[in-house]
């Protein structure tokens, strides 16, 4: 994947965190502690400890079934953790496996955590623009005109200004995913979650999505990404976590984890991925 990106200083980071004052610097955007998740009797996640600072980009990698999706879905409560604590932007959402906020507060919170799905999940009966405007109007209470203006702006910024009135079925996978990213960004989220955003896209179209994500990272967005694009992960991440069998086996900077993996399990996984590339 040819997304060139030097690790640049995040210019907007200071801008973004400035109004939040000093607290923001100390308070991680997302804090997960001792989190566990079971589906019935099957334990899918256990003892997850994880912290994402404001403006940080973390990547979750790991074999299929290791619990990556479940973990990222716990972060916006699409799955309810069975145990442990979850804090987002300083607010405790889950304590000892119990969701604290009321339903209406939960909706507000969810809007603040953007989610991008592997299968895009655009609304097929709405145009690209309407897909992005819908929740702005109904969740944030923006006026339709204001929402549409913002949507058009966002579509422009993901390179789809010319596709505003297209229906999702008339867009390529890469284009649909960029609309989905714009849709999540329209909520002005504090954190963006990506669950294998390029896995369902033709290889030659992936780069256009990765570029958008790279730009987003550079603008200072706090991001958690599940991906198999290791090269991209290496370029974009501040922290990489290797998940296997529902636990974080190893974590570190991209150079540490990809360059000198400490655990046999990590080694095997990275080697296996290398092999499939041949």
């Amino acid at each position: 994947m040819n997304v060139s990106m030097e690790k640049q200083p995040r210019m907007t980071e200071t801008v973004q965190s400035a109004p939040r004052g000093q607290e923001a610097a100390e308070q991680p955007a997302v804090q997960v502690s001792n989190l566990g998740k079971s589906f019935g009797a099957v334990e899918v996640l256990r003892d997850i400890e994880l912290e994402i600072s404001t403006g940080e980009v973390i990547t979750l990698i790991g074999p299929s079934g290791s619990g990556k999706s479940t973990l990222i879905r716990c972060m916006n409560l699409l799955e309810t953790p069975s145990s442990g604590t979850l804090q987002v932007m300083g607010e405790t959402l889950v304590q000892d496996g119990k969701i604290l906020p009321k339903r209406s507060q939960l909706q507000e919170f969810r809007a603040k955590v953007g989610m991008v799905f592997q299968s895009f999940n655009l609304f097929p009966h709405l145009s690209a623009l309407e897909n992005i405007s819908l929740a702005q109007v109904h969740t944030l209470g923006r006026r339709r005109a204001e929402a549409d203006e913002r949507s058009a702006q966002l579509l422009d910024s993901v390179g789809l200004g010319q596709r505003m009135n297209h229906m999702p079925a008339h867009l390529s996978g890469g284009q649909q995913q960029r609309v989905a990213i714009a849709r999540a960004l329209a909520m002005d989220p504090d954190v963006m979650l990506f669950d294998e955003p390029t896995s369902a896209i033709d290889p030659e179209l992936r780069v256009e999505v990765l570029k958008v994500m790279r730009d987003l990272a550079q603008s200072g967005m706090t991001m958690a990404i599940v991906t198999h694009e290791l090269k991209f992960a290496r370029m974009i991440s501040d922290q990489v976590l290797f998940l296997a069998d529902g636990t974080i086996v190893e974590r570190g900077t991209p150079d540490e984890l990809f360059g000198a993996p400490q655990h046999e399990r990590t080694h095997q996984f990275l080697a296996a991925i290398e092999e499939t590339k041949l």
Partner: peptide
């Protein structure tokens, strides 16, 4: 589809 709306706070 429902998950997408949930994630958007609808």
């Amino acid at each position: 589809q429902r998950e997408a709306t949930t994630a958007l706070g609808l």
